[in-house]
Design a protein around this nucleic acid. Structure first.
Lengths: 197, 197
DNA sequence: GTCTATAGCCGGATAGAC
DNA sequence: GTCTATCCGGCTATAGAC
């Protein structure tokens, strides 16, 4: 087996363990067991356990972005409200479909914030979240020929803060109706800063 | 030393370790070292390590509430906008003054969500957050003789989601100006649902 | 290359001396 | 009651057989 193939298998196994059992259970032993390998073979692909963690954080950033906010580009939306409401709703669907995944993201962020060598990763993670949200807000403005009366960089932070808060609220309560109302309130908050060009 | 006194000392030491070093470092050994006790004496006050964790989660809920949203009752505020903006700002000050504390809260929530025996605690935690936020929104409405056009229970979820999102944004970026703008946007979002009685 | 076996450390919990 | 010493298990990492 090639080193790169082994890395990919271990990486995929690690993501499964993280989502299913949480970061606290993401030991080297759990990973190789999930990948059905021997313990020693882990270090043939990765130097240290922490190195895999770093790679997971870095990689999950991009995946999260494309999946979570893909709904914003939804071609079926006929108004800015539909576009934004639909995007937030499709994000919530993602959380509902795989709660462990979003929980794993939070755990990774918290973990990174606690280690000096990894805090930059957490900062990068959120910088990319904000950039992606801003890009999609710009996309909505362009598509519907409207303009945001507040810098999209600021509105993007509002979007990300709300998705984080929405996720935590749903994870702790599992209340779909309350989450739907929260999405509507968030949509209202964003649309208040939209004006015709 | 009485059992209750020992419990209090261990509890306080555990909170210090949690805030300073994080949940992952909150071992029984670390706690007794912080409290300057022997290892065995821990189990004279608490049956298990998990029992202390449960107690910390339960107790920190109330403390967080009273401290975090105390600004909403600020007597100096002369308008609803000042009251809400001031409350969110004073909450952010709390986060800035003690980032480790808020991080510890997130870590406890994530931890509780992963163990079946503790998920109810996380649900209680957020239910109490929401109830407290609703109560304070009601307080603002009463004091300034205005009414909320949306159930305060729903607006309360918006408040809590935003404080969570705001906290994560600040923890990852340490950007005070961006946080201030986020607070202004949040204040706007809430005031949009305020009308004269 | 790949495995078994193990070193060395830290974890929670407890036995037993005093 | 309070401590030291220890059990036992899980952890990361690596040595060494093949």
């Amino acid at each position: 087996m090639s080193v790169t193939e082994r890395r990919e298998l271990l990486f995929a196994a690690a993501v499964r363990v993280l989502e299913r059992d949480g970061l606290a259970a993401l030991s080297t032993r759990a990973i190789v067991a999930e990948a059905e390998m021997s313990l020693a073979s882990f270090h043939y692909a990765y130097e240290t356990h922490e190195q895999l963690l770093v790679e997971i954080i870095a990689a999950t950033i991009d995946g999260e972005l494309s999946a979570g906010l893909a709904g914003l580009g939804d071609a079926a939306a006929r108004t800015p409200r539909e576009a934004i409401h639909g995007a937030l709703t499709s994000y919530l669907e993602l959380v509902r479909a795989d709660p462990g995944r979003e929980q794993g993201m939070f755990e990774l962020t918290q973990h990174a914030l606690r280690r000096p060598t990894m805090t930059a990763l957490a900062a990068d993670q959120y910088a990319k979240y904000h950039a992606a949200a801003a890009e999609l807000l710009d996309h909505v403005a362009k598509r519907f020929e409207v303009t945001w009366s507040v810098p999209t960089a600021d509105l993007a932070r509002l979007v990300i803060a709300m998705t984080d808060g929405l996720t935590l609220a749903w994870l702790t309560s599992r209340d779909d109706e309350a989450a739907a109302r929260l999405i509507t309130l968030t949509t209202d908050a964003l649309l208040a800063h939209l004006e015709d060009s």
